[in-house]
């Protein structure tokens, strides 16, 4: 858990990594909307979307298998729903459901695998997501690993005590106690963080460092992506 593989990918370099996060975000949205509005029968369109995505993956110089494997996480869920759909007599829709969710998931994965989260958050903010929400996400991600580690230790400790032959009821309350302690520690940590912020002159406003620059290439990339998605959607 300590090293989310996607994050490691996002720190590599490639033509796609070099694009501004806003351009990539815009491209992703155009792509996803195109896919989502494509009728289930348009098999050729789905082939074209996949080809487009493959081009992007190649230019991102990321491990193909790793990406596919990670994107396949959505498959159990979509396969279940696809099976139900097939079963109730709509095979075209069933296939479209599975394909759509897989391609969409892969595209979203490609965005985060080529964009460090900070840049992505800055992009979201410049697109109008409220600043407090962005900051909460940022803090959440920062402390996710710290607190998960604590939880993991507590789980280990709980497992060590399991040999004591407690009944289910007392194990339930032990788990609640652990949860309470985790809560308390998290809360106190938040207090500590806030103190550290104040100590370094925090006055209630976060100011971001250097804003990213949206260059001609970013613009060209965004246009190309939107044009390609739209063309596939309308032509095929």
């Amino acid at each position: 858990m300590h090293h989310v593989v996607v994050e490691r990918w996002s720190r590599r370099s490639s033509p796609l990594h070099a694009r501004d996060a806003r351009a990539k975000l815009g491209a992703l949205l155009a792509f996803l909307v195109a896919i989502s509005t494509t009728p289930p029968q348009a098999a050729r369109a789905f082939v074209a979307y996949s080809a487009l995505l493959a081009v992007a993956i190649v230019s991102a110089r990321l491990p193909f298998q790793g990406l596919l494997g990670r994107a396949a996480l959505v498959l159990p869920l979509s396969a279940t729903f696809a099976a139900v759909t097939w079963w109730s007599g709509d095979p075209a829709r069933a296939i479209a459901l599975a394909v759509k969710s897989f391609i969409s998931g892969l595209a979203a994965l490609l965005l985060v695998a080529t964009t460090p989260l900070t840049q992505l958050l800055n992009a979201l903010e410049s697109l109008g997501v409220p600043r407090p929400l962005i900051l909460v996400v940022q803090f959440l991600y920062r402390y996710l690993f710290v607190i998960s580690e604590q939880a993991q230790h507590m789980r280990l400790a709980a497992r060590c005590r399991q040999g004591l032959g407690l009944d289910r009821r007392s194990r339930f309350y032990a788990a609640a106690g652990a949860l309470g302690v985790l809560f308390a520690r998290s809360w106190e940590r938040a207090d500590g963080i806030y103190r550290a912020m104040l100590a370094r002159g925090f006055s209630g406003r976060f100011s971001p460092l250097a804003p990213a620059r949206f260059g001609a290439r970013d613009f060209a990339f965004l246009c190309a992506a939107v044009a390609a998605s739209t063309a596939i959607r309308l032509a095929l």
Binding site: P132, L140, Y141, Y143, S148, A175, W187, R189, A190, M197
Partner: peptide
């Protein structure tokens, strides 16, 4: 703001504690 972020991390981490 830091409190909300840390409590979000707490909810995430809390999923590791099995009842």
């Amino acid at each position: 703001i830091p409190l909300l972020g840390v409590m979000g991390a707490f909810v995430f981490a809390a999923q590791m504690i099995n009842f």
